[in-house]
Design a protein around this nucleic acid. Structure first.
Lengths: 332, 332
DNA sequence: GTGAAAGCGCTAACAT
DNA sequence: ATGTTAGCGCTTTCAC
């Protein structure tokens, strides 16, 4: 029923070793026999069995990807970057959602290792000690994408979130605001807590403005949560730095509901720059998070580790920039 | 270096067959020896090699998923549904992007079959004859998700797009509009051409309104394209049925730019109901496309085919409904 | 340049 | 209840 390398060998009057050679592009085959073998392959419709090959060669040309939730635009964009580079290097991807559960993450790593992946790209809002432990025990290389490992030991690709946040808030401060709010997702994630919040504080310090805890709005990372938070508070900051485009839009609508205008009464700077940023009025001025690139670079890095190439500093930092639109009054 | 079933067998003083039995939960093992084996597994840190298992059993417990573009919300949502059910049935997923290229689609199917996937879920805006041919030659079951096969031969999961479109346009018509526009993505995709457009025409006929080609705006499926189309035309329809949330938002902003209001001057009904629908003002009234469910049901169907269960009608149709918000003046 | 043979780590009869 | 044995389809020395 299934045609194997033996069948091809018989058909072409050569040994299976020779068939294997032509299938794998080994140059040590006389052109004439190569031709015969190729014809036999064609004739029989032979398709190499990657599982058998994987068992014999101990390489599967597949990599595992663990992602919190592929249905979230943020991660989907990362995944696309990973996928494209994987395809370029002829790897396939086993993709699984972890929902940020440490349990699931660890179980996924185990099953992927069982499936003999050649490497893994992992995304997580928070590298728990258990997860870090599991990763460091891995028999194959692992790269983190858009995910910060506080120890800096696990290879990772990111931007300098803290500096990006500092710059954004500084520009707001330069516009003369006395009360700049931070609207952020849960502060139990590394990026929010140690990067966005700290960058926000850095900027306040730079600008000689005192930190006011009442101006930090920690909400669920959703449009509704930001909107509600704005409705609920009686603070009236005149500028906002939001931790995501969605949060920023929630704030904008909150401001509008209060009968005010963005950017005239309240300036808003977002963080992420998804396509959403252009689909609101006013359009969002947003720090650009190069998600696709982060994924792509992470995968590229992984290919280097998988072939034992030198890969340089494990903590890879990509440049960032700001896309200026109408939700804040910036000049360039 | 790697510990195999032999090592465990030796450690536990049993044969490899017994180890295999306890690993696979075969009841024919005395509790005492089962315990010994489990301890040996624990002690040695044994992890079954799924590749070897796959070669021996001819089952890999992985399914292939081909998707046009995972970074698009539409597909990402489908993928999540597929993934969750796959996980539930203990399958892993090999995920690849096709960018709708027939070439890539066919190549992906080939490499997935080479990797011995147990089945495949495929998404595509258009099942080309070449793709259909390739699918029908597949040695493992294939299910289409959110994808219409005109021949109806390939198992698929969808909603009745045409009827959903008809209902939406009919409700608009009932509000007394004389000019209802259709803003749709490219009409070279099956759903747009044979379902949305036809459903739109059905409704016009039902309502005794003539079809006016000038009221069909075929644009790229993006916010910008819809916005530009609205800016460019001098037609002033008072109601619009849009083929996606993004298109609907483009239309809404186009209407606003023209100094008019939604829904007072123009009523808009969208199709998709992503979370975007609630993030615009006015919020979108939208036909609900149960993307997650479509993916989930497709994967569930695939598990049936993979285990040779009876699966019923191959063309599975899920119910649809409309979510009424403010972009159209509907009562319920 | 080509062939023979020994695995890769497991499952699945078949014995016992 | 447990052990023996023959593959699964390929890669990879090692000979010739």
């Amino acid at each position: 029923m299934t045609v194997t390398i033996y069948d091809v060998a018989r058909e072409a009057n050569v040994s299976m070793a020779t068939v294997s050679r032509v299938v794998n592009g080994n140059p040590n085959v006389k052109p004439a026999t190569r031709k015969r073998v190729k014809e036999a392959i064609e004739k029989l419709g032979y398709r190499p069995n990657a599982v058998a090959r994987g068992l014999a060669s101990k390489k599967t040309t597949t990599v595992g990807v663990i992602i919190p939730d592929i249905s979230k635009g943020f991660y989907a964009e990362l995944a696309r970057g990973i996928s494209d580079i994987a395809t370029m290097y002829e790897y396939n991807i086993i993709l699984s959602n972890s929902d940020q559960s440490e349990d699931k993450e660890i179980r996924l790593i185990e099953t992927m290792l069982g499936k003999q992946v050649d490497g893994m790209v992992i995304m997580s809002d928070q590298i728990s000690p258990g997860l870090r432990e599991e990763i460091s025990r891995s028999t194959v290389p692992v790269v983190l994408a858009g995910t910060v490992d506080e120890t800096g030991l696990i290879p990772s690709v990111n931007i300098d979130y803290r500096e990006a946040a500092r710059e954004a808030v500084s520009r707001l401060l330069k516009n003369g605001h006395e009360e700049v709010a931070l609207v952020t997702g849960p502060l139990d994630t590394t990026i929010n807590r140690d990067h966005l919040l700290e960058g926000y504080k850095d900027a306040l310090k730079d600008g000689g403005v005192g930190f006011d805890e009442g101006l930090v709005f920690e909400v669920e990372d959703s449009y509704d949560a930001a909107l509600e938070a704005w409705h609920a508070t009686d603070r009236r900051p005149t500028a906002v730095f939001a931790g995501s485009d969605e949060l920023a839009i929630g704030v904008i609508h909150g401001v509008m509901d209060a009968g005010q205008s963005v950017p005239d009464n309240v300036e808003v700077v977002a963080f992420e720059n998804t396509k959403l940023a252009r689909m609101v009025r006013p359009r969002l001025t947003s720090v650009v998070l190069p998600l696709y690139d982060i994924g792509a670079v992470a995968m590229r890095l992984l290919t280097k580790y998988m072939s034992n190439e030198e890969a340089g500093d494990p903590a890879f930092i990509l440049p960032h920039r700001m896309e200026v639109r109408e939700s804040a009054k910036f000049d360039d």
